[in-house]
Design a protein around this nucleic acid. Structure first.
Length: 434
RNA sequence: GGGCCCGUAGCUCAGCGGUAGAGCUCCGGACUUUUAAUCCGGGAGUCGUGGGUUCGAAUCCCACCGGGCCCUCCA
């Protein structure tokens, strides 16, 4: 049977449900327990035959004549429901067999027990359709393997592949821990403009858009840096932002045109402070206990051993870059052609970039002008001079250290995944032709 | 930007010059503790798109579209 026929069949079932006066898409679901809570209740009271209502998606149906087993899955987990004609009644049992398909959402009322194989089960006394699905879910054995479909229809990927779901739970927890880490260190979380009239702070091509009411071209930000530094000028000594950055570059397993960046700025600190902070942050996030005796690099090294595939390259700090590559970083006093900057590489990918911030407004103006000259000479990835930012610096910025961490790559490093598309829910892909 | 590989049923794949196959899904039947349920029967396809070669193309050739991997690289 082709896809069209399957859908037609499901539509007919939908009409059958309606013809019985049942709403196939009711506004509310009665639910006393998540599937997980129901299993926990059964563990606490094994012989009580507690009555529960659960709700979830039907992910398996094993029909056996006058009885059937259905797997019901919700966000917390899964529980099996046992439908017996004898306890459900002939009418309701027939309705189950003839109108319910894999993928439908069902509310189930019944009492908790264990089958002879000890499987936690609800013996259903009634059920309600909560949402009829018109398309069939991916097949149960092999799940969904086609990478393209996995990305284009991520919801199917999440349904079919539990480890994918787990990756995004992990990603969320990593970001959560970063926030807690920064908050506990006294950083203030802020939000700065995504739409900007000049996109500065990084060497990258921006996306352009147009503001109708103002009648002018705008850019999507390519970094968070220049606005966060304005806030340091304004007296916020420790600020950070976790936000989406947009760069008009290629699409691949390493690059996505929009990605998530953490940037932080701390007044009265230099880049050596940040090096320690990055190590501590990454250790904290990965949940590895930090031994005080471990030297720099050792902690990250331990992380890799524990969390990352052994064949991946060792985490490495690269320290002190040529001034030409770092127009926003402070020169080293003893060697002014270098800047106080480090980058952290994990598994061969740049994860963090940090430097002591340039706060000399004259030097900053000169260096941005130099970038403008490069741009005029055809380098379209040279930095744009942001005059408003230069004016802010001229009002005086305290010595400060700034950090940027590519969240997507950090998640890759900590999960051992090698494609950025595996850690971004909806990665950029080319349009599929009609 | 360069190289290699892939695209066949809803899903996972086989077929690689002679009229399109399997398992799962789906449909019908049997079955009241199954859990990849089982057993019997039955459907299901513009073989990515467009051209070409050939008596004949899913199969060979070319172009295009989409995807994957490696190299270069913007994080």
């Amino acid at each position: 049977m082709g896809e069209d026929e399957i859908m037609a069949l499901r539509r007919r079932k939908l009409e059958t449900i309606r013809s019985k006066g049942i709403d196939p898409y009711p506004a509310r679901a009665r639910r006393t327990h998540t599937t997980k809570a129901a299993v926990e209740l059964l563990v606490r009271s094994p012989d009580a035959h507690e009555i529960v209502w659960v709700a979830g998606r039907v992910t398996a149906m094993r029909r056996m004549g006058r009885a059937a087993f259905l797997d019901i899955r919700d966000g917390s987990g899964r529980i099996q429901a046992y439908f017996k004609q004898e306890s459900l009644g002939v009418e309701a049992y027939e309705r189950l067999l003839h109108t319910v398909d894999l993928g439908d959402f069902l509310g189930v009322e019944g009492s908790l027990f264990r089958t002879k194989t000890a499987e936690p089960t609800i013996e259903a006394t009634s059920f309600t359709i909560l949402a009829k699905a018109l398309r069939a879910p991916p097949e149960k054995w092999h799940g969904l393997q086609d990478v393209e479909v996995r990305y284009r229809q991520r919801y199917l990927d999440l349904i079919a592949n539990p480890e994918v779901r787990e990756t995004f739970v992990t990603r969320s927890r990593i970001i959560q821990r970063i926030r807690r880490f920064m908050d506990e260190r006294g950083y203030l979380e802020v939000e700065t403009p995504i739409l900007q009239s000049t996109a500065g702070g990084a060497a990258a091509r921006p996306f352009t858009t147009y503001h109708n009411a103002l009648g002018r071209q705008q850019f999507l930000r390519i970094s968070l840096e220049l606005h966060l530094k304005r806030l340091v000028v304004g007296g916020f000594d420790k600020v950070y932002e976790i936000g989406r950055i947009f760069r008009n570059e290629g699409v691949s397993t390493k690059y996505n045109p929009e990605f998530t960046m953490l940037e932080s700025y701390e007044a009265y600190a230099d880049y050596t402070v940040l090096m320690e902070m990055v190590e501590e942050m990454v250790s904290t996030i990965a949940g590895v206990a930090v031994e005080p005796s471990w030297g720099r690099g050792k902690i990250i090294d331990e992380l890799l051993t524990v969390h990352v595939e052994p064949h991946l390259r060792q985490p490495t700090f690269l320290v002190d870059y040529p001034v030409e590559l770092s127009p926003l970083a402070k020169r080293k006093t003893e060697s002014p052609h270098l800047v106080e900057r480090f980058e952290l590489f994990i598994a061969g990918r740049e994860v963090a970039n940090a430097y002591s911030e340039l706060n000399d407004p004259v030097d900053q103006r000169e260096r941005l002008l130099q970038q403008s000259r490069l741009r005029a000479a055809g380098d379209d990835e040279a930095e744009t001079a942001d005059e408003d930012f230069l004016i802010a610096l001229e009002h005086g910025m305290p010595p400060a250290a700034g950090l940027g961490i590519g969240i997507d790559r950090l998640v890759m490093a900590l999960t051992g995944l090698t494609s950025i598309r595996e850690v971004i829910l909806f990665p950029a892909l080319r349009e599929r032709e009609a």
